[in-house]
């Protein structure tokens, strides 16, 4: 069973709550995915327009469905802003879990490694359970581990791009070296992408856009659930090696020689 800090997870699929068309579809998809960890963001309350309420059904049934919340610091451009956002999140949601997400550039939303390392160190020292969103940089992941993060979340490709596992070889190095759980975050576009990530031995994947914007998010959530289970099982079973030349799987006996 997956363990992050002191929390156990029987599902290795984490899901986001962004981009769903309505709150019921969001809740149905999240339940169908079997996830036990869902990410949420923070925003300023709009005093004129009021609260949008899209998360309300999810928050109301959070305990019934055994869902942990993972607030992110999305919108933060510096370590200082991320630390502030994390403190607000802890107060708003009553959890020490935080996904440190610092991306100053809105076009590619790539994480700033220096600010992320700094924020992760401070927040870990403050008692937060820190899961930093990072580029698939094996050296950075080790540095984050040294400052006390509970897991690392390297990207597969840019957030919401659905491009899949473009960082495959680097994720493999991170898995080989890491002593904390590795969660592939961002870019997972299809169930087969998530299965491939799991086959590499990552501990979990986080999927949002690919489920939320599917034609049928509930069916897609189920497909992701099955793919993550299949990928994990394949990793545990041990994949056969690859080779350019063939290796017969049928007996090449000589019974046809006499024709």
């Amino acid at each position: 069973m997956l363990k992050i800090a002191n929390k156990h997870f029987s599902s290795r699929l984490f899901t986001g709550t962004g981009k769903f068309s309505n709150s019921q579809t969001m809740l149905d998809a999240i339940i169908a995915s079997g996830t036990e960890l869902v990410t949420v963001a923070l925003k300023r309350v709009d005093l004129d327009a009021g609260q949008d309420g899209i998360l309300a059904p999810l928050l109301a049934s959070q305990q019934q469905h055994n869902l942990n919340l993972l607030p992110n610091t999305s919108g933060a451009r510096t370590a200082k802003e991320a630390i502030y956002a994390a403190q607000l999140a802890r107060e708003a949601l009553g959890t020490d879990l935080v996904k440190v997400e610092i991306h100053p550039d809105p076009k590619y939303l790539l994480p700033d490694p220096l600010e992320t390392l700094q924020a992760s160190e401070t927040l870990s020292a403050m008692g937060f359970i820190v899961l930093p969103y990072v580029h698939a940089d094996p050296v950075l992941c080790k540095r984050l581990e040294e400052v006390g993060v509970a897991a690392v979340m390297p990207l597969g490709s840019p957030i919401g791009s659905n491009l899949g596992l473009k960082t495959r070889e680097f994720i493999q190095i991170i898995v080989e070296q890491s002593s904390v759980p590795v969660i592939v975050d961002a870019g997972i576009g299809s169930p087969s992408d998530s299965a491939q990530a799991m086959e590499l031995g990552v501990d979990a994947v986080l999927v949002n856009s690919a489920i939320a914007v599917a034609r049928d998010p509930v069916q897609m959530a189920t497909a992701f659930k099955e793919a993550v289970i299949a990928g994990r099982r394949a990793f545990k079973a041990g994949l056969g090696g690859r080779s350019l030349s063939a290796s017969s799987s049928s007996p090449l006996t000589a019974f046809l020689d006499n024709l």
Binding site: K19, F20, K43, R44, I54, L55, N72, Q87, E91, L93
Partner: peptide
């Protein structure tokens, strides 16, 4: 400065205070 809910009653507002109120929102 984040003020926890248990301290809201004791915390008196001052002239010029900047209050930020946030809520959970959908996100990935």
């Amino acid at each position: 400065q984040v003020i926890s809910r248990s301290e809201w009653t004791a915390h008196q507002l001052q002239e010029g205070d900047r209050i930020i109120l946030i809520e959970a929102a959908a996100g990935g």
